[in-house]
Amino acid sequence: MSSDAHVAQELERVVLARIEAGSLSLPVLPAAATSALSLLRDPDVSLRAVSAVLDRDPMMVMLTLRAANAAVLGASPVSTIDQGLTRLGVVKIRSLLTEVCARRVFQSRDPRIQRACEGLWEHSVAVAILARDLAALSGSEAEVAYMAGLLHDVAKPVVAAYLLETERVATMRNVRWMHADTWIEVVNEVSHSVSAAIAQRWELPEVLVQTIRSIGEFDISRRNSAGNYVRFANALVKQQGIYVGTVDADAVAALVMVGRSLLGIDEEVLQRMTADLQNRARKRISND
C-alpha cells in the first residue's frame, strides 16, 4: 500500500468516526431542498406540499422552473412552481434537489479547494450523465445511478476542507504539513464509503446511500445494479481524462474490461456514449 493510501485510510477512519459522532462539520445544504427531499421520502406525498416548501427559496423556484422548461422540448413554458413540479414528476424533482445539494458541496471559499472542486464536480457530472444513460438503456434504476454519480465523490471536498482545517491548526503549532500534491492524492484515495456516510447523514434516500456504498467493487451477482453502472461510468470517465489527480491507467483499463463483460456493453457502443462527454458535462454545469 502506498503511503498516500495509508494516510488516506487512517484519515478515512477518523472522518467516518466523526461523521457518525456528528462532530464533523458537513456543508450545510439548502434548507428548502433538504426539507423537500425529506417530504419526497413519503411515496404518497402531494406535490403541493413540496411546492410550498420550495416556494420559500427564490433560488429553488428559479431552478425548478428552469428544469421544468428544459424537460419537455417544445412544450409551452411553465411559470409557477406548481406547474413546474407537475411537469417534472417526483423522480426528476428528487434528482434536481440532490443535484442542488451536491453542487453546494463542491464549492469552497478556499482557492485551493475550489480549483480541485471544479474539476471534481465536472468529473461527478460526467459520471452521473454516463451512469444514467448506461443504466437507462439497460433498464436499471437510471435516476438512482445519476444521483449516485453526482454524489460518489462528495467526500472529497469534505475531507479536503477537514485537511485544510487540520493544516491551519498544524501551522499554528509549527507542525510540518504535507506537500500540496500529496494532499490531493490523499483526498483522491478517500473511498466511497465516506461519501455514503455523508449521504446518510444528510438523510438522503437509503437506496442512494446503499448504491454509493456499493460503488467500491463491482457486484457480479447483481449485474444490472445501479452501483455497477456508476462504478463502470467512473472508470470510463477517468479513462477519458475527466478527473483531478493521477489515475492508475492499468487498473482503470481492467475495470472497463470487466465492466464491459459484466454489463454486456460493446466497445463501439461505449465509444458513442462517451463521445463528447466532457462537453456535455460542461454544458450541464454551465446551465446550473
Binding site: G216, E217, F218, D219, I220, S221
Partner: peptide, 11 residues
Amino acid sequence: AGQVKSVMGLD
C-alpha cells in the same frame, strides 16, 4: 465463489 467474493467486497 467468484460471486460470493464480489458480494462480500473481497479483493
